[in-house]
């Protein structure tokens, strides 16, 4: 079940949770763009550190650390491939430049993961569904999204029950060779599919009975309103983008090597 626990949203109130998800999403996109513009270590490090106050304000430190830990494997892969590639293309030498390049590529990835995880950790699925609805995405799509989120834990529980029921009839999932093991899952998949179909029929019936599709101009119980916090975030977002473009176009960014002095001399192997 632990895999699905992350999808069970918890209702938390914090200044970050209360922000309009649409603005939050634009902010995340701005960070994303900025991270793409730069390949230098310093701006990427600034971007990385900039997210930390958000995480602390939202009170999701533990969840955030967990998702960052989840990203370490991919980060390591990115670092190694970049490093090895530039190592080979530079003629089998380790230069300060290609080391910094590999670190920067990795950091870029980490910044992306970081900002998206802040977004998803601080936006409850119903808030997100609401944001989708109010950005003129067809309602059917938004409904499908929230319903899917709603039923993931239900289906996970059902899969567990079916597995238990078949085990109680002597099914051993881990028995036999590879093909046999796949076949072992048939008694679990069929009831799961049949019940999902039955469930969706019942859902459709219930939706119809509650006036689904009565009018084109659907109303909504909640409405997303801009608050002061959202305005602050807009200003921050515009600020980051403007600064990033200005720096990119008109300022030279020193590399780490320049700052720390040239103590990395090319090494030959």
């Amino acid at each position: 079940m632990s895999v699905f626990d992350g999808l069970k949203f918890r209702r938390v109130y914090s200044p970050i949770h209360n922000l309009d998800p649409r603005i939050k999403f634009i902010y995340v996109c701005a960070i994303f763009t900025t991270a793409i513009i730069f390949l230098e270590l310093i701006p990427l490090m600034i971007l990385f550190l900039m997210q930390v106050p958000f995480v602390i304000l939202a009170g999701v430190k533990r969840e955030w650390l967990r998702s960052m830990r989840g990203a370490t494997f991919l980060a390591a892969v990115i670092f190694l491939t970049n490093f090895i590639f530039s190592f080979i293309s530079a003629g089998y030498i380790v230069t300060a430049f290609n080391l910094e390049h590999a670190v920067a590529m990795t950091l870029r990835f980490i910044v992306l993961v970081e900002s998206f995880s802040v977004f998803f950790l601080t936006t409850s699925p119903d808030h997100l569904g609401l944001a989708l609805e109010q950005t003129h995405i067809p309602y059917e799509f938004c409904f499908a999204f929230t319903t899917a989120v709603r039923f993931v834990p239900v289906l996970a529980e059902e899969a567990q029950t079916i597995m238990d029921a078949q085990k109680a009839r002597g099914l051993e999932l881990e028995r036999g060779n590879f093909l046999k093991r796949i076949r072992n899952y048939i008694p679990i998949l069929i009831p799961l599919i049949v019940s999902a179909i039955r469930r969706s029929l019942e859902l459709a019936e219930a939706m119809e009975s509650r006036a689904w599709g009565a009018t084109e101009s659907r109303t909504n119980l909640y409405v997303l309103k801009m608050h002061r916090g959202d305005l602050v975030l807009i200003v921050i977002t515009v600020g980051i983008l403007a600064l990033a473009i200005y720096v990119r176009l008109f300022l030279g960014i020193p590399s780490m090597n320049d700052i720390l002095g040239r103590f990395f001399e090319p090494q030959y192997f």
Partner: peptide, 18 residues
């Protein structure tokens, strides 16, 4: 029940009716 909060679910029919 389809929604992610109780009141949203209760409102579902009314939203549909506009």
């Amino acid at each position: 029940l389809f929604a992610l909060s109780v009141e949203k679910d209760v409102a579902f029919g009314l939203e549909n009716l506009g």
